[in-house]
């Protein structure tokens, strides 16, 4: 079939009209679109989608929005203090996960590790990634008590799962040649990785780590809600107490800090690529 097309490309459109293979492809495509539509309808019902509620309760929402303003910055130094704790949680949560993601990432790469090693490690990393930071935070609060350290551990476990996968994908995309060049000198397996693999993936690894740091700062603002330290504790207390003017002040501080850190890390990332 393909040979025929190759010989006379100018007739390709004619051939495709009578080509049963292509007709079959068209039916297949139609079926796929139908499937997508069915999934959308099914999820609409499950999620109890009700856009009318937005209109129905517009009065309530306007009233609540009004309660947020003007923001109350009376305790601003407390908020900034807790925001700094949040960033500190993110720094250690990210650093620990980067350190662990390096061996786990390398050992879950198909082109480095044998299947009996990378398969179990990958599944383990899947498990770390599958559970949200908040869930880990709740568990670690039980294990190590209330406070920022529980938040660090929660971010650390989840981020290790994420970074190991991203690191492994970078390793699987390397050029094989330089690694073979190192191998041919009589290097050990570890040395192949150190000299042949890591220099190739380092820019990507740094970029992924900084990106995860950004998103860990965002996550660290939430883990406090379950008692794992940082600004989330204050946020949760104020929302529960219907103190929306204070809540608004805290949210503004979060937005400003996260934006500043994003800009900083973007600058850093550009240095390494």
């Amino acid at each position: 079939m393909l040979n025929k097309i190759v010989q006379s490309p100018q007739d390709a459109s004619d051939i495709s009209a009578q080509n049963p293979l292509l007709e079959k492809k068209g039916i297949m495509q139609l079926f796929l679109w139908g499937l997508v539509a069915a999934i959308l309808v099914w999820s609409w019902q499950g999620a109890e989608m009700n856009p009318y509620a937005l209109w129905e309760y517009r009065g309530n929402m306007a009233e609540m929005l009004g309660d947020f303003f003007p923001p109350n910055f009376h305790d601003w130094n407390l908020y900034v203090d807790e925001m700094l704790t949040t960033i500190q949680i993110a720094i250690w949560g990210t650093l620990l996960s980067v350190i662990l993601a390096i061996p786990f990432g390398i050992l879950s790469s198909e082109n480095i590790a044998p299947w009996w090693l990378y398969q179990p490690i990958r599944r383990f990393m899947d498990a770390c990634r599958a559970i949200n930071e908040i869930v880990f935070a709740m568990l670690f609060v039980v294990a190590v008590g209330l406070g920022p350290f529980a938040g660090v551990l929660a971010l650390f476990v989840h981020t290790t799962g994420v970074l190991a996968k991203l690191f492994a994908e970078a390793v699987e995309a390397i050029e094989e040649g330089p690694v073979e060049g190192v191998r041919a000198t009589g290097a050990s397996g570890l040395q192949e990785v150190i000299f042949g693999v890591i220099p190739q993936v380092l820019p990507l690894w740094i970029s992924y780590s900084l990106y995860r740091f950004e998103s860990n700062v965002r996550s660290a603002t939430v883990v406090g809600m379950v008692g794992a330290g940082g600004i989330g504790v204050l946020l949760w207390e104020n929302i529960r107490g219907f103190m929306f003017k204070e809540t608004c002040a805290i949210m503004i501080i979060i937005i400003v800090s996260v934006t500043l850190l994003d800009m900083l890390s973007q600058k850093l990332r550009k240095q390494f690529i």
């Binding site: 040649g177 330089p178 060049g181 190192v182 000198t185 009589g186 290097a187 000299f195 220099p199 190739q200």
Partner: peptide, 29 residues
Amino acid sequence: RSSIAFIFQQFNLVRRLSVQTNVLIGLLG
């Protein structure tokens, strides 16, 4: 393998490392 030096068609240097480090890799064995 350290008793056999291999020269590749595509050179197979580690491109992001310095020239000197690439040469020093020859000592790894």
